[in-house]
Amino acid sequence: MDIITVKNLHKIYKEAEIEVHAVRGIDLSFKQGEFSAIVGPSGSGKTTFLNLLGGLDTASEGEILIDGTDMEALRGSKLIDFRMKNIGFVFQAYNLIPVLTAKENVEFIMHLQGTSKAERTKRSTELLTAVGLGERLNSRPGKLSGGQQQRVAVARALASKPKFILADEPTANLDSESTANLLNIMERLNKEENITFIFSTHDARVVKKARRIITLEDGKILKDEVK
């Protein structure tokens, strides 16, 4: 069953009075449990497409249906709520809240959802243990390496039990060992818990692990291969 359906998606934005057609009529769908990578050269529209999927940006044309809900119809608080309940984000620069510990960062989103304290503690500990940070629960981001921070970010993305996780260049700032570690964790979560991952990446190591590779060029789908 498709959890994401994208129909005729366009995104045009203005940059210094020049119109940039970043996404040009993408039609695509994702099924539950996919482990997909969106690849393409810089400026091909990967990040814009991911932002549109995540509801962080609005499309100029077309629709995005998440489990049947037209995300383009949602605005303001409803969109924020929808994002919180359905989508997990992993950013290139980790973007953890620097004043909160690893555990608090993971708990934060559950707190926003109104999860009880006991449940928050249980789940955040489980998730951090699952990403190999069971010993660093009380460390703040500043005390963690890049790879560890990105693993906290994955745990945070999972905390709200989203339908899928969008990861924008998650390994771009990581060394080989951290990258391998992170990919193994995400692959395991995908296989064991059937969590859908959609990456935008340049990284060949990510592409190698992905089971579906969507290649974008000039805002259009050039190739859509399933391994």
């Binding site: 608080s77 924020i80 994002r83 984000f89 973007n95 926003l112």
Partner: peptide, 16 residues
């Protein structure tokens, strides 16, 4: 600014 953006992106309502 970026941090505020992240917090809103992950689900924190603007008024909060």
């Amino acid at each position: 600014k970026r941090e505020f953006g992240v917090m809103i992106a992950i689900g924190m309502k603007k008024y909060k």
